[in-house]
Write a protein that binds this DNA or RNA. Sequence first.
DNA 1: CAAATGACGTAGC
DNA 2: TGCTACGCCATTT
Length: 103
Amino acid sequence: MSSAELKQRLLQVIGSIPKGRVSTYGDIARMAGAPNHARFVGTLLKNLPTGSKIPWQRVINSKGEIAFPAGSDNWIRQQQRLLAEGVVLTGGKVSLRQYRWQP
DNA sequence: CAAATGACGTAGC
DNA sequence: TGCTACGCCATTT
């Protein structure tokens, strides 16, 4: 499979995360049938066009943390978008027990 | 073409 | 519980 195809599959998976739920880089890669590509999910989101419909805020790391440096503008932006849809961060982290999405 | 990079994950201590 | 080391691999330098 080419990386362009994988890219589309990853975006499809991310786009299917329900509002108010989250998923991790690793889970997304696995769901797209490409384990070992967690990092690619990140490099992919980084290059998203401004105003994309992709719910990038629902993607966090395996520890339940927002991947950006805590307190950075991006971190705050993501936290706001999560709060706006009902995902609460306690102690700077999302409770994967509660919000992690698995089909 | 070699080396560095990165919105990651996991094992080991 | 926290930190360090690796493994990983598309992209970028």
